[in-house]
Design a protein around this nucleic acid. Structure first.
Lengths: 111, 111
DNA sequence: TTCTTATGTGAACATCTCTTCAGATGTCGC
DNA sequence: GCGACATCTGAAGAGATGTTCACATAAGAA
């Protein structure tokens, strides 16, 4: 339990972060990046989206310092750069996997 | 590090949850509910939004089983009903408070 | 019953968001 | 120089989202 509420500015910042995580495409990108650095084309394939859409998504993530780029020649390697987001992803994914056991999933295995 | 990526359906579900958390109003409502059960009018005051907007927001949260209602006469008491979301909120808020120390906030206390 | 309170709902509206398409930029190999 | 490649960008359109306003429902008080 929480004695004092956090300031609205903090909550707004938080909503912003959750907003970044709330798009399926961006989320797939970030999850893919949990495994380490990837190039744009690789990210696009992993997240199953066009390279243009991927680039647009990465632009947003870059603007919010959620990912960082390392450039090598004409390639751009992206990596997660925000511990906050990485933690949120880890916690959330761990819980999602748990939920599979809790919920009633007929044939409840995976792929 | 993660050997296999989670199935897309799981990631989509997760994006959905993050979507609920991504609206400042809804997020303020949920944060307020961390302290325990509250009525609609109290929630509206706590989140600084109209009672109609609050009701609409609660409707969405109800539909996603994030909150549960207990009715007593003409009052409706709302409470967080999703352990997943509660955990995400706790983790995120703890980290936000930490960030206040890390970042460069002049007069960085709280109201 | 009638009035008041507490909450829920629907439609309209403005706004934001994501995707695609077309093209721009910059790098490498010849 | 030229062409191929990898990534980035802007404009435009479709779709989703949140808010407000007006009203509906339901419970308690008189």
């Amino acid at each position: 339990m929480r004695a004092t509420l956090p300031p609205d500015a903090d909550v707004a910042d938080l909503a912003d972060v959750f907003g970044l995580l709330s798009d399926p495409g961006r989320l797939r990108l970030m999850v893919a990046l949990l495994g380490g650095e990837l190039r744009v084309a690789e990210l696009a394939a992993a997240a199953n989206m066009s390279e243009s859409a991927t680039s647009h998504a990465l632009r947003i993530l870059r603007a919010h310092r959620v990912v960082a780029v390392r450039r090598s020649g004409r390639m751009a390697f992206y990596a997660l750069a925000d511990a906050h987001v990485r933690m949120l992803l880890d916690v959330a994914l761990a819980h999602v996997e748990h939920s599979e056991m809790i919920h009633d999933h007929p044939g409840g295995g995976r792929g």
